[in-house]
């Protein structure tokens, strides 16, 4: 039964490529209908299986925030969605998807599944990048065990959950902001593979940046 899940990315995701309609009223109705559908679908629970074998339940709409899971589900071509609930759990074959990581990921998608979709008319990538994390996300991602934190980011990246990778990335960048290289190397356990000469050369190139106004 397990073999039916595949990672074929050529199928599915066609919905997002539909041509936009220009009539504002239609748009509004269509959006509302879509929202109701997402709400109904999220009542259907599916099971996800971690690399360590732990099984976690998750709403269907929430689970589909993972592009990988969404593609796998699309590949099943199941018209009766309720049947998905009774299927074998979806295996997530990457060692970063530990029990702990998957538990957190399910918590995140369950909280974010009803986020409004990005409006292509006002999609300002620059603005979105600079936006601060929400209070909930900050508490969610503030994880003391760095191995676990890195697992979650790697797992989210593997499962292709863009929003969660962004939360992790912003968290790390916030933590190292303004710190010295030595501090950051120590914190993120980065091995310095430069020779002292190479490092000095880079310092010299960037000297102007440390100059006082």
């Amino acid at each position: 039964m397990n073999g039916e899940y595949s990672l074929d990315t050529t199928e599915g995701m066609a919905a997002s490529g539909d041509p936009p309609t220009n009539n504002a009223v239609d748009d509004y109705d269509a959006e509302e209908a879509l929202e109701r559908q997402r709400e109904e679908e999220n009542k259907i629970k599916i099971k996800l299986k971690s690399f360590e074998g732990g099984v976690y339940e998750c709403g269907l709409t929430a689970a589909k925030m993972s592009v990988m899971v969404a593609n796998m589900l699309d590949a099943l071509q199941e018209t009766d969605l309720t049947k998905i609930a009774t299927r074998e759990p979806i295996p997530l074959q990457n060692d970063a998807v530990t029990n702990k990581a998957l538990e957190k990921i399910v918590e995140w998608v369950d909280h974010h599944w009803d986020d409004p979709p990005i409006d292509p008319d006002f999609d300002d990538e620059k603005e979105r990048r600079n936006e601060e994390l929400s209070h909930w996300d900050k508490q969610f991602i503030d994880i003391a065990d760095q191995g676990e934190l890195f697992d979650i980011i790697a797992a989210a990246n593997f499962m292709d959950i863009k929003g969660l990778v962004e939360v992790g990335a912003k968290h790390i960048c916030n933590k190292i902001k303004g710190k010295s290289c030595t501090e950051v190397r120590e914190m993120l356990k980065i091995h310095n593979d430069f020779t002292p000469e190479e490092e000095a050369a880079i310092h010299k190139e960037n000297e102007w940046i440390y100059a006082k106004d």
């Binding site: 790390i172 190397r185 593979d193 430069f194 880079i202 960037n206």
Partner: peptide, 17 residues
Amino acid sequence: ILSYLSLEDCFRFECLS
């Protein structure tokens, strides 16, 4: 991940690895 760094941090952390 590094794409969320400020430009100033980018320059400082260039020599990390």
